[in-house]
Structures are given as structure tokens and as C-alpha cells.
Simulated scan of single mutants.
Amino acid sequence: MTTRIQILVCVTILGTIVPAYAGMFSRLRGDKPAAAAQPEEQAKDSNEAAMLQFQRQWEPKEHAYSFLVPAGWTIEGGMFHVDPTQANGTGNSIDGKCDLAVKKDAAGTVMLRWLPVWNYCDMSQNQQFSLSAGFFPVGSRYQGMEVRPMPDYGTFLRQLFQTLHPSATDVNVVELRPIPELGEVFGKINKAIDDYLRSTGSRPLRYDAGGLTVEYTENGTRFREGLVTCLMDMRYAAALWSNQHTLLMRAPVAQARQWKPVLDIVRQSVKLNPEWFARASKAGAQRAQMSLETQRYIQSVDQQIVEHRNQTNAEIRYEDYLMLTGQEDYVNPYTKEVERDTSEYKYRWTTEQGDMIYTNEYGFDPNKKRELNHQEWKLTPVRER
């Protein structure tokens, strides 16, 4: 059981860095349009969107994965590890964690942030621990985990927002929506775990996924922010639960639509480093192979969700969070691999190193630009249907 739980925790790392479904900046149904940007703001955004240059950069701490970063933006944070001797237990020390922000400026006025997965202890559903529950009140620590009753995703995200923005004022919850498809994705990824739990008479894992869109004022700026998470319930089998796939994206309300494609490009560009995964894995090559298979699976998640919706004729209830629209399949001219990316720009250029340029300008060629032609650029064509 221990080995399988370790594998499960290993998979949860992917949930913190996988490309997310958080297109929260579009106007949601029933929401009033955001205030129009001032002319100078519109001109600035228009100029910035004319040609967007991204550099592929490594997660700075351990090179665990790479992702695209807009030129001039900064990266803050990265992988970290919890010392079990300081945490009074190993519940959050089995594998590394990630807290990383990609920011337009030091204040994070426009920002995407991947938040770490934390394991929490809740003994209420586990018969083995029920007699001991009274010795560990809410807020105490058990085996390195905070004792905390499992909430629903909405309560978790509201509490998370309050923790991240204690000085926020004029807070308005724009929308709170479930994402059952995200839970289904994790269910497929962890099918082997569920099969094992059923074989031992335990209940399978349960998921509660959703997103929260909030508008608020902080330091004189009115922001729109989207938060997404998938809570994984393992209370019956192991007296714990965790927050998988937790991230946030934000921008000033008046500029949210303009920055949305940029943040989408960043979040969709993550590529795991299998060499790092092999080093971090206690099972070595076998776990590295698992990471590659899981990575390939995750890369097809958006398509699977789309197909699921088409097959069931389901309502597109969550397009502002899931970003199922505004994407296209491109063929990388160097690797010949199919890459899913935003369709907001007509032309997509790449280098062998994975840097990107997006533009709508007809006839633009970075190979003819002195400041860009120190490396070769090639157009990435749309995949033939």
C-alpha cells in the first residue's frame, strides 16, 4: 500500500504543473462587461499584442519542467521540499512541491501562479483513526499534515483567496462553477490506485473540482482573478485529502481580455523533464516511464474533455474556465510533434530551443529582424485535418 501511495503522491506533482483550464477572464454569463480601458491603455495593449516573444525557461530550482515566459517577465519561486523533522512527520515530505509565479512586474499585476499540493489529515471517514481523532483537534498536526476537515472546492478556494489576499477590499465573487471533467481526468490517471483500493475493500478516490472567479481591489488596482483546484478525497483509505491542480491567474479588470491569451500560452506550454522525474523517483526508470506515459496522457486531456462533451452532447457549462475554445493543433517544424496552443494569433514561430513568437502581422519574419535573427525561426503550420 505504501508503494502505491508514494506513486499516487508522485502523480500529484503533475497536477501542480500540468497545463490548466483557467480562462477566467472572459465575461462570464450574467456578468456585466468590464469597464472599458482608457485610450492609452488600449494603445499599449494593442502594441504589446502585435508581436509577442516568449523564451522557454526552466523551473529555476531543479529544472523539473520548462515553460514559455514572455520577454521581460520574471519568475518567482519553484520546487521546494518539506523537512520532515521540522514538520513533525513525513505526510508532506515524500515528494517535492512547487510554488511558482510568472509575473509581468514585481507586484504581479498580471500573473499566473502554480500553487503547491498539500496533504491534509481528516480522520472522520477512517474507522482505524476514528478513536484517535479526539487527540488531534482541527489546526493541530498529524504526521506532518495539518488536521483540517475536508471542505468542498468552493469553500477551499474562498479560504485560499482570503489567505493570498488578506488586504483585498470590495471583493465580488463573479462566478463559482464545478468542473466535473477535471475530476474525471484525475480518476483516469489514478485508475490503478482505485483498482488496488477496491481490491482491499476500500473506497476509491473521490474528486471535487471547480473554479472561482473574483473581482477585488488591492493596492488601488481593481483585479479579476480566477482560481482552480481539484480536491482529492482519500479519507476512507488513508485519513487524508489534498488539493490537486491548484493555480490562479489575474490581471487588472480593464485589461483582462487583452492579457488572457498571454497567460493561456504560459499555462499551456509546460513540459516535464523526465530526467528530473527519474532522479526524483525512488523507483528510477520505472517511475520515469510512468511520468512519460502520464505526460502524454495529460497532453491529450483537453481533447478528451472535448470528445466527452461531444459524445454526451453535454452543455458547454464552463468554457470560461476550461478554455476549450480558442485553441489549435500545430506541427512543430523541428520535432514534427503536434502541439496544442492558442489560436488567438495568426502566425506562430518557433526555434529549435523552443522559444516562441506570436503575431498577427502579415509578412512578419523574425529571421529578418536584427534583434531576433541570432537564431533560426520557423513557422509552425496548423496540423492538416
Rank of each mutant, 00 (worst) to 15 (best):
M1T: 08
R4Q: 07
I5E: 08
I5N: 13
Q6S: 15
L8Y: 08
T12W: 04
L14T: 12
G15L: 03
I17D: 00
P19A: 11
G23I: 04
M24L: 08
S26V: 10
R29W: 03
G30R: 01
A34S: 13
A35G: 11
A36N: 08
A37T: 08
Q38Y: 10
A43Y: 02
K44F: 09
E48Y: 02
A50C: 02
F54M: 03
Y65V: 10
S66M: 01
S66T: 11
A71M: 11
G78Q: 04
V82Y: 02
Q86S: 14
T90C: 06
S93K: 05
I94A: 15
C98K: 11
L100C: 09
K104I: 05
T109R: 06
T109D: 01
R113I: 09
L115N: 08
P116F: 03
P116G: 10
N119A: 15
Q128E: 01
P137R: 12
R141D: 05
Y142K: 12
G144Y: 08
E146P: 00
V147F: 09
R148E: 00
P151I: 12
P151C: 11
D152R: 06
D152F: 03
D152V: 07
H165A: 14
S167T: 13
I179S: 09
L182N: 06
G183C: 08
V185F: 06
G187C: 10
G187H: 08
S199T: 08
S202K: 03
P204L: 02
G210W: 02
E215M: 07
E215G: 10
T217S: 14
G220N: 12
G220T: 12
T221M: 06
R222L: 05
R224V: 12
E225M: 13
G226V: 07
V228H: 05
C230R: 01
M232H: 09
M232L: 14
M234G: 10
A238Q: 09
W241N: 05
Q244E: 08
L248V: 05
M249K: 07
R250S: 04
R257E: 07
W259S: 07
P261V: 11
I265N: 00
N273G: 08
S281H: 09
A288Y: 00
S291V: 15
E293S: 14
R296E: 00
I298H: 00
I298K: 00
Q299T: 12
Q303T: 07
E307L: 13
H308Y: 13
Y318R: 11
Y318K: 10
L324A: 04
Y330H: 10
V331F: 07
Y334E: 07
T335D: 00
K336P: 00
K336I: 03
V338W: 01
Y345C: 02
Y345P: 00
Y347D: 00
Y347H: 05
T351F: 04
Q353D: 14
G354K: 08
D355M: 05
Y358C: 09
T359H: 02
N360Q: 06
E361Q: 11
G363V: 06
K368L: 13
L372R: 03
N373G: 10
H374L: 04
Q375W: 02
Q375T: 15
E376Q: 15
W377Q: 07
L379R: 09
T380F: 03
P381F: 07
